[in-house]
């Protein structure tokens, strides 16, 4: 018998006023799995993450996390259950120090020891944050802010981490460092749902890939079975210049 997934989204519709952004979306994520959600602009990727985080109310469908229906929950209750979101654009708290940003991330936890331990783990993943612990969030570089946003999200002790466009506006070296930490995070058993426009990068770390096209999600399968052509057809419908195969990227 297949174990029930950690996150199970079924038949999800989301509207912005009269505009329908998601159409019967079905996505599932198992414990410890890294799932990439790829697609072009306005495909509905961020909308899906926001709906799972209870920042948007679905008009139909169910979102079940760890056996609990998230339908009527508030965003803070969803975080307390173990779902965290690293929003697009980082959104660190500019007037708070790095350490204070991390403490806000641990807001849903009560045990002081667990908070201390999580902070140590974040500092181990991102040593630069330890050095900058007393620096204000708005004084950090873009890469450091992204690390802080991921670290802050980890402070809630999530079982599922959702990351929205984490490579946006970062240098290739920083992107590489950030992606290395994603692998480390998934090794601890935390599931990752990754939204990226950088298809090759996200597919390279994923266990499974979904494509979103005009508000509909299509499961493409495991990266090893996907050709470059599959990705192009599913996501964009146009040729990617100089693209390599996802298998080649993984090897």
């Amino acid at each position: 018998m297949t174990p029930s997934p950690l996150l199970n989204v079924r038949g999800l519709d989301v509207h912005y006023g009269r505009f329908q952004a998601l159409f019967h979306v079905a996505v599932h994520v198992a414990q410890g799995e890294v799932v990439a959600l790829i697609g072009g602009n306005s495909a509905g990727k961020s909308t899906l993450l926001r709906a799972i985080a209870a920042l948007l109310a679905p008009s139909a469908g169910t979102i079940v996390f760890s056996g609990t229906d998230l339908g009527d929950l508030k965003p803070h209750q969803v975080v307390a259950l173990g779902v965290s979101l690293v929003p697009e654009g980082r959104h660190v708290f500019g007037s708070l120090t790095v350490r204070e940003n991390l403490l806000v991330g641990a807001h849903s936890r009560r045990a002081r020891n667990a908070i201390r331990q999580s902070m140590e783990e974040v500092y181990e993943l991102f040593p630069i944050l330890r050095q900058r612990a007393n620096i204000m969030g708005n004084e950090l570089s873009g890469g450091e802010q992204q690390m802080l946003a991921i670290g802050r999200s980890l402070m809630s002790g999530p079982a599922l981490m959702m990351l929205d466009e984490i490579s946006q506006g970062l240098s290739p070296l920083v992107i590489k460092a950030v992606y290395r930490t994603l692998s480390a995070i998934s090794r601890t058993g935390t599931a990752v749902l990754l939204v990226e426009q950088d298809v090759r990068r996200s597919v390279s770390v994923a266990d499974r890939v979904y494509a979103m096209v005009r508000g509909r999600a299509v499961c493409l399968g495991v990266p090893g079975s996907l050709t470059e052509d599959d990705l192009k057809k599913a996501c964009f419908g146009f040729e990617l210049q100089g693209a390599r195969s996802s298998e080649g990227e993984r090897s």
Binding site: P75, H76, S95, L96, V104, G105, H107, S153
Partner: peptide, 21 residues
């Protein structure tokens, strides 16, 4: 106090990290 300052800085981000705004 910490959550109030977080909400002041960025209400949407505060929600994503579990603050009951």
């Amino acid at each position: 106090g910490l959550t109030l300052m977080a909400v002041r800085d960025d209400e949407a981000a505060a929600q994503t990290v579990g603050v009951d705004v």
